[in-house]
Design a protein around this nucleic acid. Structure first.
Length: 350
DNA sequence: TTCCGGAGAA
DNA sequence: TTCTCCGGAA
């Protein structure tokens, strides 16, 4: 097992990805440590999210809040706004909770068990931070590692049932030397060589050991149990603009879909689009739908627009956001799609 | 349109 | 163990 790890580490020394939150290979050997705050921030952003999508967000967060104490002191709405568009907004709420706990206790725990106690840090992220930031020999298994293990050992049982088997394989390969580099090496292998679609087996450092390649089934692994089809839900989004240019928005409840984010009023979504207007006005149906897909359903939102009078009442949990404070980039993607459609209607007719 | 990917609650 | 959370790439 040791030589497999060593082969992979040699490959990593030559082919490691250059990422904004990463220290170069062998840095740990020279006594250089990754910043635990940067490692934690990047790993939370990388949950269910690609490296390409994360890079810009990571850079902006690090510039705006360079240390965990700064993030801990941030206003909730600033963090939610900076996170907007990255998805899975519970991560942003847990990020802030976690930063406040860590700042209060004077730094990150340096063990997997300690990290697991923190909000938003689960089995994968705790192992990843312990390995990458503190060079502990933890078993780090993300989607990349699952795929690499399924192929290396030709695991035919589909995910998620096979998850523990894949973890067991990963555990037997994890070395005591340079475990942080090793963890990143397996993930880099999955991301750049042992890719989901057409793996580059010809240049893989583990080619000679790979049962999946020997059996000629590497590209088909890991198998997955079929997911259930997504139903379609319907709703209405009311985009109201006041005479002074302020927009009528609402802050969504902390729990649930798009929790804590800004959105357009419009009540719940269901089999039919039924929602009373947030305020009385002459609402125009722009005749266009914003379409968006979430994890477990497709959404179609009819867009209504209106010019609103000054001095009207503001519905509960809604707010008029002044023109100068409104940034479309503060909205989650589905709400930004609605805005893009509505903006055209305002420019045309109103 | 389908595929991909961790945490937390139920 | 199952379900609820998003957005970008292919």
């Amino acid at each position: 097992m040791r030589e497999r790890a060593e082969e992979l580490l040699q490959w990593y020394d030559a082919h490691a990805r250059d990422l904004p939150w990463r220290v170069p290979p062998r840095a740990g050997v020279q006594g250089v440590r990754a910043d635990p705050y940067a490692v934690w921030l990047s790993e939370v952003m990388l949950q269910q999210t690609t490296v390409a999508a994360v890079k810009g967000y990571f850079t902006r967060f690090m510039e705006r809040w360079p240390r965990v104490e700064a993030l801990a002191g941030a206003r909730d709405e600033d963090v939610m706004g900076e996170w907007a568009g990255l998805g899975y907004y519970a991560r942003a709420r847990n990020l802030l909770k976690c930063a406040r706990v860590v700042a209060a206790r004077g730094g990150f725990p340096d063990t997997r068990e300690g990290l697991m106690e923190l909000p938003g840090i689960g089995p994968y992220t705790s192992a990843a931070i312990a390995a990458i930031a503190f060079d502990r020999a933890e078993v780090v298994v993300d989607g990349n590692v699952e795929r690499v293990m399924a192929r290396l050992y030709a695991v035919l049982e589909p995910l998620p049932a096979s998850k523990q088997v894949l973890i067991d394989h990963a555990a037997r390969l994890t070395p005591q030397e340079r475990p942080g580099d090793y963890a990143q090496a397996v993930m880099d292998l999955g991301a750049t060589v042992c890719t989901p679609k057409s793996p580059a087996c010809g240049i893989c450092p583990w080619m000679r050991h790979c049962d999946g390649r020997t059996a000629g089934i590497a590209p088909e692994l890991p198998r997955k149990t079929p997911k259930k089809p997504k139903p379609v839900r319907h709703g209405i989004a009311y985009v109201g603009r006041r005479a002074d240019g302020a927009w009528l928005l609402e802050r969504r409840p902390d729990k649930g879909l798009l929790g804590g984010m800004l959105g357009w009023p419009g009540a719940e979504w269901g089999d039919e689009a039924v929602a009373a207007p947030p305020v009385a006005a002459v609402w125009h149906d722009i005749g266009a739908e914003a379409r968006h897909t979430f994890t477990h359903f497709h959404l179609r939102l009819s867009v209504m627009v209106a010019e609103l009078p000054m001095g009207g009442e503001v519905p509960k949990q809604a707010l008029f956001l002044p023109k100068t404070e409104f940034q479309p980039s503060d909205l989650p993607t589905v709400m930004r799609k609605v805005f893009d459609l509505a903006r055209g209607a305002f420019e045309d007719s109103l």
